[in-house]
Simulated assay, not measured.
Amino acid sequence: MATLLHIDSSVFPGEASASRSVAAVFRRTWEEQHPDGTVLYRDLAATPVPHITAEGYSSRDSGAFATRLELIEELESADALLIGAPMYNYAIPSTLKAWLDNVILLGRTSGETPSSKGKPATVIASRGGSYAPGTPREGFEFVRNYLEAVLGGSLGLELDFIVPELTMAPRNPAMAQLIPLYEASRERALEEAVVKAKRLLDGRAS
């Protein structure tokens, strides 16, 4: 029986959030493909995990470390991950960073033999503008690059990205001319969510 770990971190609810909207389509498709599967869900905006502390790092008998173990065990029990990672001020939300700080444990989830190495992780990396190669703000892209290093490099996950962009266009008059590009990006992201979710067989990439 397959298990999906679904993490949302957008501060905006439901359809007001591009990352939540696309992740919801991915999850719904995954559940259709795995009717007997299990979804472990964490909404980091509604219920933030504690920021890492010295106690959580150094004392394995502490309550802070017990919280880390709970999060780590969720990661290790999942066959696949779905992570909503909107760009806020050029980076990921602090709540998602807190989750990452908790689950990265050298000698267990990271190091020479990461315990979740090879698991597929789909990241919904939404952003208000465009930071694609060749755009004026290409150099300010610190979400995908960072997550490739941490999720891929440290945790050893097999990453796939879906990138809905220009999400501020409908709300920012200065970006009005970009609305058609935003709409095309949104449709493409929703289509990719369906396709990529269907490609996961028993939780792992087919």
Rank of each mutant, 00 (worst) to 15 (best):
Y90R: 08
W99S: 00
Y57S: 04
S94R: 09
G134L: 09
G111Y: 12
A149N: 13
T135L: 09
N145D: 12
S94I: 07
T29D: 08
F140R: 12
M87P: 00
I72K: 04
P170S: 11
R171I: 09
S19R: 05
G111F: 07
T113E: 13
S126C: 09
A205K: 13
D79E: 10
P164C: 12
E183P: 05
I83W: 02
G128H: 10
G139C: 04
E141D: 10
S116W: 01
L96E: 00
P164R: 11
R108H: 15
V25E: 12
F161K: 02
I52T: 11
A121G: 05
E112P: 06
L201C: 02
P86T: 09
G118E: 12
V22S: 05
A169T: 11
S115L: 14
A132W: 03
S77R: 11
S77V: 00
L181P: 00
R108K: 14
E31F: 02
S19I: 02
Y57C: 01
L106H: 15
P170E: 09
P86R: 04
R108W: 11
I52H: 03
R20K: 14
I162L: 11
P86Q: 07
R204E: 10
L147P: 01
Q177K: 13
G56E: 11
S19Y: 06
E191H: 13
S130N: 06
A78M: 06
R42A: 12
V11H: 09
S126A: 15
D36V: 03
E15T: 14
E15N: 13
S154M: 15
L166I: 13
I83H: 04
G37W: 11
A169L: 09
V143S: 01
V163D: 06
A132C: 02
R27A: 13
V49D: 05
P173R: 07
N89Q: 09
G107Y: 09
A149E: 14
M1V: 09
I72C: 05
R27C: 10
A45F: 11
L147Y: 01
D202W: 04
E138W: 07
L157Y: 06
L71C: 03
E187M: 08
A16W: 05
E73I: 03
P120W: 03
L69W: 03
P120S: 11
P13M: 05
G63Y: 03
S9A: 15
T113V: 14
N172V: 13
K196L: 13
A193Y: 01
R204F: 08
A205G: 01
R27G: 01
S19V: 08
Y146K: 00
V194Y: 05
G203M: 03
Y131F: 08
T167R: 07
V123A: 06
G118M: 07
S21M: 10
V39D: 02
F12M: 13
G37S: 11
A85H: 03
F12T: 10
S58L: 15
L106Q: 13
A169I: 07
G203L: 02
E158W: 01
R68I: 04
M175F: 14
T3E: 12
A121D: 10
